[in-house]
C-alpha cells in the first residue's frame, strides 16, 4: 500500500513562513509569560506542544512492558493454535514454520511490512508542524 502523504498533508512550503517567523509556544501564557506543562493558552498555530515532557520514564517503560505482555499473549495463543491445527491434522507438522510465500504474496507482504514499519517509525520522526494548520490571523477573532 502506498505510504505517500495524502493531498491533505500541509505542503512544507506553506509552512515556511511559520518556521522562520515568530513561533509562539502554545503552552506559554502570552500575558504573564508563565509556562504550563500541558494547559494550552491559545490555538496551536505553529508547532505541536509537548504535553508529555514531564511523563516519568517509569510510566513510559511500564506501558512498553504492558504492550510486550500483550504481544506475548498473542504469540502464545498463535503457537497453541498452530499446535492444535497440527495435532488434529488440519495442517501437516511444520506447515507454518516451513511455509513459503509465492512471489506475488511475498511482494505484498514486503509492502505490508514496509507500511507497518513506517506507521510506527514515523511517529518518532514526526514533523512538529501541525498537520491541520490554523491561520495565525485567527487571533483577530479571539
Amino acid at each position: 500500500m502506498s505510504e505517500l502523504p495524502t493531498s491533505r498533508e500541509v505542503p512544507v512550503e506553506s509552512c515556511s513562513d511559520a518556521r522562520t517567523s515568530l513561533r509562539p509556544d502554545p503552552l506559554v501564557d502570552p500575558v504573564t509569560g508563565k509556562r504550563f506543562n500541558a494547559a494550552l493558552q491559545g490555538p496551536i498555530t505553529h508547532h505541536e506542544p509537548d504535553f508529555l515532557h514531564q511523563l516519568p520514564m517509569d510510566n513510559a517503560v511500564g506501558a512498553i512492558v504492558a504492550l510486550t505482555a500483550e504481544v506475548w499473549m498473542l504469540r502464545e495463543r498463535l503457537a497453541a493454535l498452530e499446535a492444535e491445527l497440527e495435532s488434529h491434522k488440519v495442517l501437516p507438522a511444520g506447515a507454518v514454520e516451513n511455509h513459503q510465500d509465492t512471489a506475488d504474496v511475498a511482494e505484498t507482504r514486503a509492502a505490508d511490512l514496509a507500511a507497518y514499519t513506517a506507521r510506527v517509525m514515523s511517529e518518532l520522526t514526526r514533523n512538529r508542524e501541525p498537520v491541520s494548520h490554523i491561520d495565525p490571523s485567527v487571533q483577530k477573532f479571539l
Partner: peptide, 22 residues
C-alpha cells in the same frame, strides 16, 4: 501526569483517526 496525558490524548487520538498512514 493524568492531565498531561488527557491533553495529549485529546490532541493526538484525533490525529491518529484522520492522519495516520494507511
Amino acid at each position: 501526569n493524568e492531565f498531561q496525558f488527557y491533553c495529549w490524548a485529546y490532541r493526538n487520538l484525533q490525529r491518529f483517526k484522520y492522519h495516520r498512514p494507511t
